[in-house]
């Protein structure tokens, strides 16, 4: 929920380093219990992006000096134009696709392997699995999704990719090391010899707010908290999201009425109020959406 007060700090867009594409809108073949924008096969709050929209945003992004591009949804591979979009984007810069890994086809991966080899830029796949076994994963992501996602990882490895596995933490901090260790073993079992793992915090909005609990009123960023804080840790200071309904501030807050900022990147450059509970999580963990290779470091 948005809870703007006179004490709510605002964040300016310092530099548009990262451009996201909400390429599958809120449409997904899965209905994960913790999805912060409640994606499902029937949630059409946001729809698919067209190749033309992506092309137009890519051309606009050059003048802004965008450093890298991310594709998310929903499940990006449900969009029939995804493969040509990724091929085209690799001509502009590095690309990361966030997928649940359950719908990958050999034909697509063959084309993407070729595009990746031709490009000077990296094509990263980030596959979401929420634990090293079906017992942890399936109650959240759906029956048999653990096995299906593992097969997706096997396929990605067979095509020469090195996927980054992201897991939303639904266990205690003290279990992290054991979970990572078990995960590495499981991944080696499907041919992923060099596991790359990233733990994500839960974002307690959307479906997750109903599964567990949402944010308390006190879980908001205040002006005092921003005093001395490096605002470049927050995604909204260096990123925007292209959706079929305009450009939004970040991929997490899509359902918030104030998230859509304008029709173009230029229009969406305005500052944003950190009035949401999810902003509090971003403040605590910093750069949760970007890859480790471009994670923004403090200090420096």
């Amino acid at each position: 929920m948005c809870a703007m007060t006179s004490d709510t700090p605002h964040v300016t867009l310092d530099s548009l380093d990262v451009l996201w594409f909400q390429v599958a809108g809120t449409i997904c073949n899965l209905t994960c219990q913790h999805c912060f924008i409640s994606c499902s096969p029937t949630n059409k709050t946001f729809g698919f992006l067209s190749l033309e929209t992506v092309e137009s945003a890519l051309l606009e992004s050059v003048a802004h000096g965008v450093k890298e591009y991310y594709f998310t949804g929903g499940e990006p591979f449900l969009n029939p134009a995804l493969v040509p979009m990724l091929e085209r984007t690799l001509e502009f810069g590095p690309v990361t696709v966030l997928t649940n890994g359950t719908v990958l086809k050999d034909e697509w991966l063959r084309r993407l392997r070729a595009a990746s080899e031709t490009s000077k830029y990296s094509l990263e796949f980030r596959v979401s699995i929420d634990g090293p076994d079906a017992e942890r994963n399936d109650p959240i992501r759906g029956e048999r999704t653990f096995d299906r996602a593992l097969q997706g990882i096997r396929k990605l490895c067979e095509f020469g990719f090195l996927p980054i596995i992201t897991m939303t933490q639904t266990w205690d901090d003290s279990e992290n090391e054991a979970v990572l260790s078990q995960f590495r073993q499981v991944l080696r079992g499907v041919g992923n010899e060099r596991p790359r793992l990233k733990i994500l915090p839960r974002i307690r909005i959307g479906a997750e707010a109903e599964r567990t609990n949402g944010y308390d009123e006190f879980e908001r960023i205040t002006s005092e908290m921003m005093d001395g804080f490096d605002q470049s840790q927050l995604l909204c200071s260096y990123s925007r999201v292209v959706t079929d309904r305009g450009v939004a501030v970040c991929p997490i807050l899509l359902d918030s009425p104030d998230a859509l900022l304008g029709a173009t990147l230029e229009e969406a450059a305005e500052e944003f109020p950190l009035a949401h509970g999810a902003c509090y999580t971003c403040y605590q963990f910093g750069s949760i959406c970007t890859n480790p290779s471009t994670k923004r470091q403090e200090h420096g």
């Binding site: 050059v62 000096g65 965008v66 450093k67 890298e68 590095p94 290779s293």
Partner: peptide, 10 residues
């Protein structure tokens, strides 16, 4: 592989 030419120009 993760730094676009547009970014370096900027």
């Amino acid at each position: 592989s993760t730094t676009s030419t547009a970014f370096l120009d900027r």
